[in-house]
Each structure stands twice: as C-alpha cells, then as structure tokens.
Amino acid sequence: MSEQYVLSIFRGDQNGGEEQEYQVPAIPGMVVLDAVHYVQAHDAPDLGVRWNCKAAHCGSCSAEINGMPKLMCKTRLDEYQGQVVHIQPMRTFPIVKDLVADVSWNYEVAKKIATFTPVNAAPFRMQQWDVDRVQEFHHCIECFLCQDVCHVLRDHDAKDQYFGPRFMVKMAEFEMHPVDGADRIPQLKNEGGIGMCNVTKCCTEVCPQHIHITDNAIIPLKERVADRYYDPIRNLIRRLTKKEESSSSTVPSKA
C-alpha cells in the first residue's frame, strides 16, 4: 500500500456542518488542491471548492489549512507529513458550501474606490524606479486571505467601518501611481476606515504574493491621512483661514 494523506475537510453550509475525513494516495509534489480534487473525483463529487488556474495566479482556492489562511494550490502536502490536514473555508466571510465562502462583500467595496485618474494622456514617461513601488501592489491576486486574517474584519466584523487590507493595497496602487491625480485621502480616512488598522501585520504574513501590505501600503497611506488631518501646523493654518476639514480642494491632492 502506498503512502496516504488524511484530509479532514469541512462539509456543510449556512445551516452548519462538520469535518469529514478522506484518505488520499500520495503523489510526489502534490498540493492540497490536488488532494481535494482527488476526493471530488472519487468520494464526494458534490464537494464545493473554488479553483481556477492551480498556479497561484488567480487567487480562487483560498482556505484555512490547519488554521492558516493559504492558497490550496500553493500548499504542498509533504509539509504535513504524518499530520491530519484540516481544511476549512475562510471564516471571515459567510459560507456558501463546504470550502466555498461568499466573498461578494469584497466586490462591493471594490466599486467604491475612486479609480485611476491620469492627469495626462498615455504614453506616460515613467522610469522603472518611479513604478517599482506601485508594481508591488499590482502583484495582488485578490485571494482575500488578507481580508480573512484581518482581525478588524474577522473578530470584530467591522466590514461597515474598514475596507480591509486588500483595498488599502488597491488604493495605494492608484494613489501612488506617478500620473494619478485623484484625491483618495478623505475616503481613506472616513469610509475606508484606515484608522481601524492597528498594524499587527497579520495580512502581510499571509499574503501569498509577499506584498508588504502593512509597511508599503497601509503605513504610507496612514501617513498621508495624518499629514492632511492631524498636522498641527496645517491645523493652525486651517483654523486661521477657517477652511473646512473636508474641503479637499484647498490642500495638495498628493502628499
């Protein structure tokens, strides 16, 4: 008998459910998603799971593997030699079925962000070092693992107060584009809720694309918000000139 892996996969829907065990023959180099596919093909054809590319490009197969938010296609089973591999759906979002979570909230948030607004027409003259910073944010595959692990969303369910790390990265991507002219600082402070993040860096830790979410996106954006709204000198000028806080036209659109 060849080597076997033991998977314990959550089966259920909004009415509840529990983990069920499945045995899967080991194949060299196999990933968790391969094993889930094996179970689907042999034991449970109706096992709900999302996946597309199986190459860590699409960000569909997000799940919690032995408690850690991960992509199933990028997690090798030989990391779990001798252990039962527990697979659960992302817990921050409502469940649809089995490993499939309802991530539609993220798509609602995406619609709220002021999109890229170039100040002049392409072709743009930008040096590689000008774009290195934003290109990091473009690596995001929208797997929503950062949203899943963010305690503001996960433990406090404050989805109405904070867009979450994914959309801080998206806003940073537009905001730091050398040719962008829109002002997203009021939105970051208010509706986006950037102040909710208290920089525990859990999102950075789980990012399969290794984006430095906290250091390179959230903290610089927090600084821009602070510059705008909490700079004492600017506050003084504002008081003297009696400008409204929300009057974005009186302050430079870019930090």
Partner: peptide, 14 residues
C-alpha cells in the same frame, strides 16, 4: 496604460 496598467519601463521611461 491610460486605464492604469503599469508596464515595465525602458530607460527612456516608455
């Protein structure tokens, strides 16, 4: 590029 894609650049910035 106009819609926000950020391609790698040449030394001339194109």
């Amino acid at each position: 590029e106009q819609w926000g894609a950020v391609f790698d650049r040449t030394p001339e910035g194109l």
